[in-house]
Structures are given as structure tokens and as C-alpha cells.
Design a protein around this nucleic acid. Sequence first.
DNA 1: TCGTGTCAAGATCTT
DNA 2: AAGATCTTGACACGA
Length: 317
Amino acid sequence: MRIRFGYVAMALGIPEGSPNKTVTASTLNKLADPFDRFSKLTRLVKENLSTQIRVLYYNLAHDIKVFRFTSKLVPLATHSITSGWNYSEEFQHELAEIGTLIKKAGIRVSAHPDHFAILNSKDANVLEATLSDLCYHVNLFDAMGLGIEAKLVLHVGGVYQDKLQALLRFKSEFSKLPSRIKDRIIIENDDRSYNANEVLSLCEDLKVPMVLDVHHHSCCNDGTALTDILPAIFATWGSMIPKIHISSPKGTKNVRAHADYINVDEFIGFLDIAKQYNQDFDVMIEAKQKDLALFSLMKDLRNVQGVTIINQGAIEY
DNA sequence: TCGTGTCAAGATCTT
DNA sequence: AAGATCTTGACACGA
């Protein structure tokens, strides 16, 4: 089976490789002239977008075809201080350039609204903020000219001590989403609330792909072995190539936090499970050292029996 | 320039 | 009811 690797948001292997530059609302508020606020924001977005393009070229130079965007390309995009700002139109040229590059190079991209985006929150304000955040991400994908293959990863969350009700609320809110959002959502098992089994059932119900996070599964599970559910998880992707997330625990005391690099033995453990299903898949590396962790894992994989290195960002196993 | 605090976000645990 | 905690990378600011 063929496995491709990707990393999240920023490149540590090149200078100025972070498209995460931002500003706080309070700093903007201190600028008396609205024009100054506007130009400060505009400068930051332009910088982030040009960094993003540079990072994509860097990825291509290293055969990395899987990438997750930062959610901060447009600082404060969903903050009330920028309400009415048509960033998609203002940066249409730059965003289109990014999209063209992605399509031409065949890069698989996604985004992951952070865990404050809660589709099934009981709080109407939180729900509104969540919808606005999802809309923001989709606005960027649309402006890039990317279709529904550009996915948005969500967690379930919104438990309030009642997981069953929370799941019902999730399904109900999901069904109300506009298709431009709904068609892009994929759901991931998390590290404390919803395990892989529960998310699998939800994904089967909603007919959306499931992202298996192998590390989260080891933090939060009901005793189900991956061997038993992996084929069903892969099946939620239909004809698409499944994607999984991997990371390693930071330490024995803090098992949920992400370590700098990926432990190759843990990953091989997963590969050995996956191998029996002979399904190609993509792997998102969630390690603090980002691209450097990817390179490090690839280096470690060179010494593993059964691994064939296809290029700097893919293996055959 | 360095270190500490703050910012964004929401749920949940503690006081 | 209010505050601390969790999480993340980067800004903001005082020393």
C-alpha cells in the first residue's frame, strides 16, 4: 500500500515559514484612524498569503502532497472588529494563485477549525460563532477555486454531560448546514469525549468520511481494537483516499500533548494493522516540529524492513 | 532583547 | 457566580 505524508500549517525548515502572523483586536483598537487598522490587517494577510505560497513550493520541492492550512491566514477574520470585511474579494488574486498551484500540483489540502468550533453547542452565540468560522474557512477554499475535496476536519464536542443528546444536536445542526460547508466536513475522533467507535457510527449515519486519529484512539477508546473498525473507517471515504492523523505523546505524564517528533515504532505498529487491508491512505503528521518531524520520520522509515521509499513524502509498505 | 503575560476560542473543573 | 485550566503560536509589553 502507498502512504503519503503531510504536515500542519507552517514550515520550520525555511526562514519565515509561518503564515500565522496576526494582530490582537486590542492593538487594532488602539489605532485611531480606521485606515491604519485596515492597512495593518491588509499587510498581515498579504504577508501570510505570500508565505503560504512559499511554503507550498517548499512542500513540492520535497514531494509533500498533503497539507493542512492554518486557520489564521486572515487574522481576526471572524472577529467582530472586522465585520463586513470582504477578505475573499480583496485577496482574490493571491487566493486564486494559491488554489491554482494546489490544483496544478495535485496537493491534498484541508483545514481544521480549532476545538472552539462546536457545531452542537447549546449556546446560540457559540453556534453562531461556529457557523461563521466554518463559513470563513469555506470562503477561502472557494476563493482558491478548490472544490469539496478540500475538507474541514471537525470534532464532535458539545457534551454538557450528555453525549447522546450532544450527538443528536450534532446531527440536527449538521443537516441544516449549507452544502458548501456540509459537503466538506469530515469528523475526527478526539482525545477525551468521542472515541473512534462513536465517531464511526456518526460518520456512517451522516455519510461523511471519518478521520482516524491514532493517538487519540490510544488516549480515548472503549476497548475496541483498531483491527476491528479500520475497514469500516476506511469505507466511510468511499472512492476517496482515506486520511489519518498521527502524533506521539509528549511524555508518560502528559500523554495527550503532542511530542516534537513521531515515534517510528508506534507508527509501524499502525502500519502492520493497516497492511492487512491493503488500502492506500494519507497521513497527517501532527507533531510540534511540523515538516521537520515529517523528514525525521521518513529518515527513520528508511531503516524499516518492508518499507520502500517512493520519494521524500511517500512510502510503499 | 529577553521573559512574562495576553490573546483568540468554549467547556469543564475548582473555588 | 466567578475564576482557573486546558491548548496553541504569536503578539504585546515591561524590564
